[in-house]
């Protein structure tokens, strides 16, 4: 049962910068937990603290129920995949994968068996004698994965492992990582700034901002019920539309709970029709740009001084400059207070 528990973890750098301001997360055994947030939100620092590469200023990190604050990275029984892969450039693929096992005194034939078995599952068996510089980006990524898997650790840590790959390969590797993690059943923590990666990979999604956790939950729950305006605007592409209540017609704001300052709705939840069908319950919006992406089109609109994005499925006949009447079903409306907190 390799659980990872973070209790009020804090990190303050000697310069006085507070990178992580009290984060508590409980990760279940075999779960894939994704930490997502903009750069500088403290997600990588948090991962490095779990790895033992960064000292913990305050709070406690426990792996399998055992507090590891004072334990070095080697004894935590974790494996990490780095953004730049961190393959040892002077060692062959085989030696890269065998290095960790050798350091732990695994018998020679056992190392050989495990390296070859891992190489086979990752389709690296024909590359074992190569040096990292002779591999493509995708292959290097696989070797980095292999180096983590071969040790059979309690926890996998991924630090933006796909951000150096091109879009197509990234999609492929995303699926592969998910399948591998399921098959191996190893508890994992995955850091990314890509919300699509976060949504598709996570069992548990942790949205971070400025050193604090904004929301923890299953990806679709987070998508459907963002707790803050930050989560609302960070999760989902394109992001949720956020309009100040003051700019809305009273017919709409009458449905708002007390203290509401912002209305949010997803681009796909705003139904629109021609301007002439403007009713009391709709918003007037002027189309500024149209972005067809194939299966859907995004309309970039303006309501008073606020921008909003609408989604139309398939091709759309709407042209820039058109005026629309946008209607939002009351159950699709998200209301937030002045501090950006959700009002239910």
């Amino acid at each position: 049962m390799a659980t990872v528990d973070l209790k009020d973890v804090r990190k303050t750098y000697p310069s006085g910068v507070e990178a992580v301001k009290g984060v508590s997360i409980a990760i279940h055994d075999k779960a894939l937990c994704v930490l997502v947030g903009p750069s500088g939100c403290g997600k990588s620092t948090l991962l490095r603290m779990i790895a033992g590469l960064e000292a913990i200023t305050d709070g406690a990190i426990a792996i399998e129920g055992k507090v590891v604050n004072a334990i070095g990275p080697a004894e935590r029984d974790i494996a990490m995949v780095f953004q730049n892969y961190a393959l040892y450039p002077h060692m062959s693929v085989y030696d890269n994968m065998a290095y960790g096992l050798r350091n732990r005194g695994t018998p020679r034939d056992e190392i050989d068996r495990r390296v070859r078995a891992t190489a086979k599952t990752l389709e690296l068996d024909h590359l074992l004698k190569r040096q990292p510089r002779e591999l493509s980006g995708g292959q290097r990524q696989r070797v980095a994965m292999g180096r983590a898997i071969v040790r059979n650790p309690k926890v996998f840590l991924f630090d933006e492992p796909l951000s150096n790959l091109d879009a197509k390969l990234r999609g492929q590797m995303r699926v592969e990582i998910k399948n591998l993690q399921r098959a191996l059943g190893v508890t994992s923590v995955y850091v990314t700034h890509d919300q699509l990666e976060a949504m598709t990979l996570a069992d548990v999604l942790v949205v971070m901002n400025a050193g604090v956790v904004e929301q923890i939950g299953a990806p679709l729950d987070v998508y459907e019920r963002p707790e803050t305006t930050f989560v609302a605007s960070f999760i989902g592409a394109p992001p949720m539309n956020l309009l100040p209540v003051a700019a809305l017609p009273s017919s709409i704001t009458s449905a708002a709970p007390a203290g509401a300052a912002t209305l949010g709705f997803r681009p796909e939840d705003g139904t629109f029709s021609d301007h002439s069908e403007q009713s009391q319950l709709s918003l007037a919006a002027e189309v500024e740009g149209v972005e067809p992406v194939g299966a859907e089109s995004f309309l970039y609109c303006r309501h008073a001084d606020n921008r909003l994005i609408l989604r139309a499925s398939g091709r759309t006949t709407v042209e820039p400059g058109a005026r629309l009447a946008v209607t939002i079903a009351p159950e699709k409306m998200h209301w937030f207070d002045g501090e950006g907190k959700r009002l239910s």
Binding site: A51, G52, L53, G72, P73, A74, I78, A79, M80, F82, Q83, N84, A86, Y88, P89, Y99, G100, N103, R104, R147, R151
Partner: peptide, 15 residues
């Protein structure tokens, strides 16, 4: 020498 290499080796159990 990239710092991550040293970190990777530390995680790989090398003193």
């Amino acid at each position: 020498i990239p710092k991550t290499l040293i970190e990777a080796a530390a995680i790989d159990g090398a003193g």
